[in-house]
Design a protein around this nucleic acid. Sequence first.
DNA 1: TTGTAAGCGTTATCAG
DNA 2: CTGATAACGCTTACAA
Lengths: 341, 341
Amino acid sequence: MSKKQATIQDIANALNITASTVSRALSDHPKIKKSTKELVELKAKELHYQPNSIASSLRKGKANTIGMIVPRINRHFFSNVITGVESVLNPNGYNLIICQSDETIVKEKQNIKTLLASRVAGILISTSIETVQTKHLEKALNMNIPLVMFDRVSDELDVNKVENDDESGSYDMTCHLLSQGYKTIMWIGGPRTSSIYRNRYKGYKKALVEHNLDESGMPLFEGNNDLPAAKEFMTKYMETKQLPDAIFAASDLMALGVIQALENAGKKVPDDVAVAGYSNEPFSAYINPRLTTVEQFSEEMGRSAAKLLLEEIKSEEEELVPRKIILRPKLIIRESTIKKH
Amino acid sequence: MSKKQATIQDIANALNITASTVSRALSDHPKIKKSTKELVELKAKELHYQPNSIASSLRKGKANTIGMIVPRINRHFFSNVITGVESVLNPNGYNLIICQSDETIVKEKQNIKTLLASRVAGILISTSIETVQTKHLEKALNMNIPLVMFDRVSDELDVNKVENDDESGSYDMTCHLLSQGYKTIMWIGGPRTSSIYRNRYKGYKKALVEHNLDESGMPLFEGNNDLPAAKEFMTKYMETKQLPDAIFAASDLMALGVIQALENAGKKVPDDVAVAGYSNEPFSAYINPRLTTVEQFSEEMGRSAAKLLLEEIKSEEEELVPRKIILRPKLIIRESTIKKH
DNA sequence: TTGTAAGCGTTATCAG
DNA sequence: CTGATAACGCTTACAA
């Protein structure tokens, strides 16, 4: 219909007042008469006025937008973190621009670029699996754009962080397996260049050492964190080698791959071999056997990260003392690791 | 570090040229000398120049941003649609602002408001379960902001749409159940105010009628599309009534709730009763029994919707002839509905 | 309580 | 090939 969008100027003209008065009226400035406020509201409706937050952002130098970068949006863990983030941001008047790095450093750099160009008020990021250098992230800091890292963090960067205590989650799981009487525990994980898998491996190793077991004697697989990789590895492994007592996969997806391989080979879980996962995917409670795993409280992680970011945005102080919030994961014991007698 | 962001003006001053030249150089205007382009690039790097897309958007009257509204981001279906959308939008230079309506009309209206204020170049929406009126969506159309509906669409609005052929998916499933010899088929679904469930029910009914069965004789449950609702209903149902031959749940989550209730009551699937779901959630292939369901091609839906939107944005024509893309879902037959002899 | 005026950083237009 | 100028729509000192 209307070729041209109505502006505050149009409202002002129609009411024989000035744009500044309209602006103040619309933002509920205390020193504007109630009557003019009402007039303005009315005329705004009449002209189908829609505020232009681009103009507002330009003038104010900041957008009411937060940028968020995750490796993949369709991972249960990350989509729940996003839900947590939104639940904090929206009530505070912020919008979220979501970007996916697809686990590549190239797209991650691209994402940062567009977020900086959009002059977002802050950035939340969980880095890609390829990310080791952090120069691109430092650009944000140089522009005084607050940045909070979550889940996958970088030690080099001195910023607010929210982490899962992967080491302790993994440690707890390994202790559980040992307490069930399993002696040889195979490790299956993603690349240890990522803080996630590095820490989970650390916890696994720590538990073994504490129980006087030599981790170097245990079989190990390190590959893509997905179902096919784990399934393929396990299938091949069984062709030549003996099964361990238990298998600890650093993700539920990998655990599922392992279970499928075992099933195909006619092996029973947990009778022939116990299998544990990590991260409590929605399916884990429902597969056969029900999968022992570690719950990560993803929404809570999103809320914490968003809160840290908002604090940082609100505090005008130049010097930030970076905080680190560590969320303690929870062991969830199900059928797949329970020793039968 | 740098208190102030460098602007094209700063670059211009440093090189004794004008801002317009810098602007053109940076956007690779054909009529700018190669040498000045290089000088500009260099100085831009030196000054840590970051383009300001807010200013650019204001000047150009449009943002390079697309808004997307989904009921819930952490639903497998929607996060995959988003992935599909991004895969088309990003290569075309568009960013995505993602909003969740949380299945409420109130939040959906709020979402529209912020997207309009951000002057997004277009909107992709799958409406909330509460949405029946569409006045808020018409605002976008009045502002000449292209809008594409996907999955959950509204008949009242004359816009581009991408739909799943829920009726045919549901019809195929019902025919499959009938062909297995099941005579009484219970319907379990979400509210039929939503086009989704209305169409799925239609397909179910159509198949029954074609087989000379009276749908009014079949047991039915209509409630929240989630696991607990279905589980609770089923548990109560069994207390007083006979089981049907088969149960067709309009979502995998509801199917899972049903299976759990049956399991708790000591009933076997599919021996005592067959169970089918809809939408092929990631867990469905792995639960016990493996769930017969309908695959929806969610990423494809995202890609189609995004392409339609881009076309509409690019075409300057005032009058749009709305198109409707209908994606044909695919029946996936697994253990949970196979009759044993 | 309201008006005046300047400016946020870009880009389109016109001119040369 | 480049420069000058205005404008996008809004906010905010400062003034009245």
